[in-house]
């Protein structure tokens, strides 16, 4: 009698599901330089819709730079040069003459530090619709309520919409910022370390929210917190020195990564 050793590698259900999803963003051979600093090197990533894609990596690995190129916030930094392409819904957003103001109405962004405007809660949420020309008070009211509900903060602030947003706690401010971003009815939400300035409980609330939002939006989140990436994302990309080392199902990355560097990073052996 001989022993037959046969591998039993099952394809997880998720993977099949994911393969059938459409792409939101496709980066093809994306390179980016700050002056002479080569910050992103030949990035190829295919980001699917209605998924949470986490980007992890040590400081200075290019993860924040990458997420900022996705809505061209890198425009605000002078002396940035790019090559390659980022296809968003079939159009190369790095093309000359592409109107990034238009892109940004479809791609919302939540920043590292809660940054509400020094205005009332209501005005904060109504800001986006207003700059896009909505003046009707009734419509604005509806947008404000819908966005605040979407960000799971309506019950906490419904009686104080006219108070300054700064009177809220840090965690609430961040959810106001998420609501503000929902008010422009985006397709994608980019989050750049959205919980790094928050306490653990607020962090968990934001994470819960991300799970909710994923049903309607595609979410790309940069995070320093590996457990967070593990908890909330479907796919994880590991960046190191401006390169994508590994991009795969989060389940795979955190249980059995293919690359030694990924394993060393997620198990806290460097970075």
């Amino acid at each position: 009698m001989t022993t037959t050793v046969k591998p039993k590698i099952q394809v997880p259900e998720k993977k099949k599901e994911s393969a059938s999803r459409g792409s939101v963003y496709q980066s093809n051979q994306l390179n980016l330089w700050y002056d002479t600093n080569h910050a992103l090197k030949n990035i190829d990533l295919d980001i699917k819709e209605n998924e949470v894609t986490a980007i992890i990596g040590p400081s200075g690995c290019g993860k924040s730079t990458y997420i900022k190129t996705l809505n061209r916030m890198t425009e605000t930094i002078p002396s940035v040069k790019t090559s390659g392409e980022i296809i968003y819904r079939g159009k190369n957003i790095l093309e000359k003459g592409y109107k990034f103001e238009e892109l940004r109405t479809k791609v919302g962004m939540v920043f590292q530090k809660p940054n509400p405007f020094p205005k009332s809660i209501y005005e904060n949420i109504a800001y986006g619709p207003r700059i896009h020309g909505i003046k009707n008070k009734k419509i604005l009211d509806q947008i404000v309520e819908k966005s605040l509900r979407g960000a799971a903060i309506w019950d906490e602030v419904k009686d104080r919409l006219n108070e300054n947003a700064y009177s809220l706690s840090g965690g609430q401010q961040q959810r106001i910022c998420i609501a503000r971003c929902l008010a422009i009815e985006p397709d994608v939400i980019l989050m750049d370390e959205p919980t790094s300035a928050l306490d653990p409980i607020s962090t968990l609330k934001v994470e819960e929210l991300v799970q909710e939002l994923k049903k309607e939006y595609s979410i790309i989140i940069v995070t320093h917190n590996m457990q967070q990436a593990a908890r909330i994302s479907d796919k994880t990309a590991f960046f190191l020195n401006g390169e994508v080392i590994e991009f795969d199902e989060t389940d795979k990355i955190f249980s059995n990564p293919s690359d030694k560097r990924t394993e060393d990073y997620i198990s806290g052996r460097f970075g």
Partner: peptide, 8 residues
């Protein structure tokens, strides 16, 4: 909170 090989 071990992950990957460490967790295994």
């Amino acid at each position: 909170q071990p992950v990957a090989t460490d967790l295994r």
